[in-house]
Structure formats: structure tokens, C-alpha cells
Design a binder for these strands. Structure first.
Lengths: 144, 144
DNA sequence: GACAATCTCTAGTAAACTGATAGAGATTGT
DNA sequence: ACAATCTCTATCAGTTTACTAGAGATTGTC
């Protein structure tokens, strides 16, 4: 039970764009550098995020990627599910290989709900908010 | 983010032993049949669960596996972590490839807590309890 | 309109992981 | 002795993961 590196990269990329706020395109190379992601790999991921409707892009000089919708309308769960596939532990149960009176389908539902209560409630606006707050505190402490 | 088939098999096996209650050994073949698990694969899993201190065993005729501790002292999380490794999304962050001011470590901690609130609180005694209740209801409805 | 900067698309790929299977021991009960 | 079990080591095909390579398509600028 784990999140793929690809999934994490996707989250960091969307977070980067959300943190940059502005609506003008950000170059892949910049995101790659800031977020420490192999650029060629990131290209694939960003393209996939665009297919998913999360990002828009512009080619050519001064091109780049940008968010297709406001950060508060994108949840971590949205992105993760689009990149990593369904986040549902225990999904293999529907097939006929499970005894008919198993308690596990219910159990996995419970797990799913717990998971969802975090990843589907946290938007990128939330993440950026927390991050700015933390940075503000850090600077404040510095200045004392 | 998913649970391996091996992990699910392990849970079903422990559940099977917990449901059988008694302290005399249950044969691998029986568990395999009841829980629809390939027997040879199950052998590996049970052996691993024994290494983990969850099960005991006896060889030879009338041999088999049995729980090494009471079902209420074994949680789903215990078993899952022993078979599938750490259940901590976002664990790869400690390495130097993450920007220093990322909000994700905290976020993954939150996810971890939510997950833990289910898998580390649910014991096999709980699962057996629910299962018996459901079966009782089913029979009751039948008799109407 | 040349040209450089970007995104885009298709392949390929080494290494690890998954979900098994095979078969020869080691023990135990009868 | 012998059959029934667990135990241990090896092997394996298929898939996934995390990348890399390289050629093409667009766009802005001079």
C-alpha cells in the first residue's frame, strides 16, 4: 500500500503550479528543477495531467504549463487517481475467488472512507495555504 | 495505492484461523480450499506469518497451523505490515530529492493517521464478530 | 522566414516486483 | 515403516516502475 513515485511527482508538479499562482505558463524545466524531478519523466506526467483536464499548456518560446482550474477545485485524490489508478484497497474481491460470507469487503470500504476523508478533502489551495503559513513562521522566527 | 494479493491472502488466512477458534492445528489444504487460495502460494505466506510471530505450527500427520496469540491481539495492520511492508504513503521523502519546504510530509502523515485509525484498530476478533453477526442475520432472515 | 525555445508523441529498456509453481527435505502420528 | 504434513530453496513468466532517447509540431522573436 503505497503511492508511486510518479504519483508523488504529479502532486509536486500540480502543487508547484498552484504555488506559482499566476496564469502564465511555467516551463517544464523550471518545475523539474524546483521540484527535483527528472525532466523527461516529468514531461510524460504533465502531458498525462493535461489529458486529465488538470492542466493546460502552450508550446513554443514562452510556452509552458498552467492549471486548467483553480487550486481549490483540485483535490489530491483527483490527481492521484488519475495518475495511479483507483485508490481502493481490496478491489479484487468482486471476482469469484472470495468465499461468499467474508467480512473483508466491508472492511475495505471502511478503509476507503478513511482514506477518502483526507485525500478527497485536501485541495491544492489547502496545501499552498499551509505551505505559505509555514514559510511565514519560518521567516518570522528568523527575524527575531 | 493498493494491497497486494499476497496481503489479502494473509488476512484471509489469519481470519480463517481466528474463525475456527479452536487451538488445534488446521491444515494448509483446508485453509486453501475454504479461502480459495492457491495452496503452494499459501504455504509461503503461512510460513512468513509464522516468522512474524502470528502463527504456530505442527508438522506431520494431524499437523497444521494455529494462531500464536488471541485474535483480539492481532490487528489487520500488524499482518499487512508484516507481509506487504510499511503502509506509509509518501515514505520516499526523507531522501534528498525533495525541496526543503514541501507540505507533503505533513500531508502524508495525515493520510497515515487516517489509515491507521482503521487498520490498527481492527482486530481479527472484530472481524470474526462482525462476520458471525452477519451470518446470524442471514440465517434469521431465511427462517422467516 | 529563419531560428531557437518549448511542448508532444512514440519507443525502448533495465531492474524490480508479483503471483505463482516445482520438488526435495524434515517431522510427526499411527 | 509409512503416510501425512509442514519447510525450504529455486525458478519463472508476466507486469510494472522509473526512466531515457529522439524525432516532430508550435510558437515567439529578430
Amino acid at each position: 500500500m503505497d503511492v508511486s513515485v510518479k504519483g508523488e511527482y504529479a502532486l509536486r508538479a500540480v502543487f508547484d503550479l498552484a504555488g506559482r499562482g499566476g496564469s502564465d505558463p511555467v516551463k517544464i524545466a523550471e518545475i523539474a528543477a524546483r521540484q527535483r524531478i527528472p525532466q523527461k519523466f516529468l514531461e510524460l506526467i504533465l502531458s498525462q495531467l493535461k489529458q486529465g483536464g488538470f492542466l493546460g499548456s502552450r508550446r513554443g518560446a514562452e510556452g509552458g504549463y498552467f492549471l486548467a482550474r483553480p487550486p481549490r477545485n483540485i483535490t489530491v485524490g483527483d490527481v492521484l487517481r488519475h495518475i495511479d489508478g483507483p485508490i481502493s484497497p481490496g478491489r479484487k474481491q468482486q471476482r469469484g475467488n472470495l468465499p461468499p460470507d467474508s467480512p473483508f469487503p466491508e472492511f475495505w470500504q471502511e478503509v476507503g472512507r478513511a482514506l477518502s476523508s483526507v485525500i478527497d478533502k485536501t485541495t491544492f489551495a489547502d496545501l499552498v495555504g499551509r505551505w505559505k503559513e509555514k514559510n511565514a513562521r519560518r521567516v518570522a522566527n528568523w527575524e527575531i
